[in-house]
Amino acid sequence: MRWRRTLLILALLTPGLGVILLMIGSVFYVAVMQSFGYYNLVGEDSFSLEHWEKVLGSKQFSRSLSYSAYIAVVAAIGSVILAYPIAIWLRRPFRGSLAISAVLKAPLFVPGLVASFLFLNVIAFHGVVNQFLMWIGITDEPIRMQNDRGAWGVVFLQLWKNMPFALLLLTGAVQSISDEVLDAARDLGAGSFARFRKVIAPLTVQAMQAALIIIFIGAAGDFAFQVTAGPTNVQSMAQYMVFLKDSFGRWNQAAVVGVSLMILALFGSLILAFISSVVLKSGNKW
């Protein structure tokens, strides 16, 4: 019996997990080895820690790492915080809720580069926002908003793009909570925030974690938003990796940044998901 069960599980895992391990495993292996001096596209191979020492010792690396981590955390948490109330609001259909839901999810279908392009058009030096601000007299001179130092442009784009994604996942989860459960909570005198904390949050924690993880990883590896709308005095990890490789042909150093980015994406998102589940599940004791 145990045998059959194990075989069944393995058979179920093969088409999904098996394919991933087979293909990504070999690519992943090559990237890691490359950071230690192997698999050079050109040149001789030999084991070396030099690339890691060089990259980890540079100011640029620590700046990029903390910047990418910051953007990823803000994007993931921000998107979920924005999406939760909307998902709950749209839980029960009402006149027009379909239209709202559709319009809110529209950014999901706008590729990142297009979103950047649209955004830059609007905030351009003589763009519509600046013209409007000057027209109503808030400012006399146009404000230079492109590539702002605080990365507000990138954060805005990340939220614009990812909130709908969180909404998509959370809507499904919130809608599967039965009315009886919520009514019972209300009858027991739970306030709206308590109902969220003690009923909705624990029951939707899986969907929320999925949203957090996927958004975190996507934002940590962001290239398109950062290159077009991001601050010019710091690079994101993906940008730094491409910069090392494209501008200098430093493949091994780029591989170091790439491997670090993988570590950030993997562990950062898991830590975030873990913390969120601890926070939310702590409310599940009523």
Partner: peptide, 18 residues
């Protein structure tokens, strides 16, 4: 000076009067 995002970005912005 201002650091721009690319060659094209520089040209678009000088053409736009920035």
């Amino acid at each position: 000076y201002v650091i721009t995002a690319s060659n094209t970005d520089s040209l678009q912005r000088i053409s736009g009067g920035e």
